[in-house]
């Protein structure tokens, strides 16, 4: 079993495998997205009794916020495995996940602000969740900036991996401190409450989350493929690949 895993961890075997997997994930994302949108607009209740129809923003906001957090954790796990076993592929996975994670953090922030305008009457409230989402966005930006600044790809992979690990150790502490801070300064009473969440709403949020998951996997795999192509451009198998591609 172990041999198998490491066989697929070799870039030359992973490259075609990823190429076959990407369309599957993208189609799954499209289908799940359609199902999720159908559920959120036709099956979920028309309006929330407190927020009116603006609560439909939740179907984007909650999944993107979840995704931004999941992706950071997954990224740190890849980074850790890259540092421990020194596998090139894990570091590439970590690097490929970061831009999409940052994108979801950004979307969660913007949709949170747009939701806040009709609900709280203001675009931005320093509530614990929005604030920690903002900090998470900063962490992503730091990760991407460090990776972009270091020219040697091997050093970049290791340095960003270590940064991701330091970040993941700090995330719970930051989250705790932000909650502490916001209770000290008395947050607004209306929260993004999940207690009133109905079954239909939960289903659509889950469907949207799964859609974003498949999308993320597809995009990350595609980035890894490009990265492999770039780094292995001097190897024989890439040369063979290019010649095959040019015959067609």
């Amino acid at each position: 079993m172990k041999i198998n895993i490491f066989k697929y961890a070799a870039p030359a075997t992973f490259y075609p495998l990823a190429g076959k997997m990407i369309p599957w994930f993208m189609w799954a994302a499209a289908l799940l997205g359609i199902a999720g949108l159908y559920y959120s607009f036709f099956e979920a209740p028309l309006a929330d009794y407190q927020q009116g129809q603006s609560y439909k923003i939740m179907f984007i906001h909650v999944p993107t916020a979840w995704m931004s957090m999941f992706i950071y954790v997954v990224m740190a796990m890849w980074a850790a495995s890259g540092l421990i076993w020194n596998t090139r592929l894990s570091a590439m996975m970590a690097k490929s996940l970061a831009p999409t994670g940052a994108l979801f953090a950004f979307l969660a922030l913007v949709t949170g602000a747009v939701w806040g305008k009709p609900t709280w009457g203001t675009w931005w409230v320093w509530d614990a969740r929005l604030t920690s989402e903002l900090i998470l966005f900063f962490l992503y930006i730091g990760f991407i900036a460090l990776g972009a600044a270091i020219e040697d790809p091997r050093r970049a992979a290791k340095a960003t991996g270590l940064l991701a690990l330091v970040g993941i150790v700090n995330v719970p502490i930051i989250y705790f401190s932000v909650i502490w801070w916001s209770t000290l300064h008395q947050p607004p009473s209306l929260k993004l409450n999940e207690s009133t969440m109905g079954v239909e709403m939960l289903i659509s949020i889950l469907l949207m989350t799964l859609c974003f998951w498949s999308y993320t996997i597809g995009v990350a795999l595609s980035r890894v493929r490009t990265e492999i192509l770039q780094r292995e451009s001097k190897t024989d198998w890439v040369a063979a690949l290019v010649q095959e591609g040019e015959k067609k």
Binding site: G52, Q53, S54, K56, W115
Partner: peptide, 8 residues
């Protein structure tokens, strides 16, 4: 969207 069209 019950007045919220722009936001949603």
């Amino acid at each position: 969207m019950g007045r919220y069209s722009v936001y949603v």
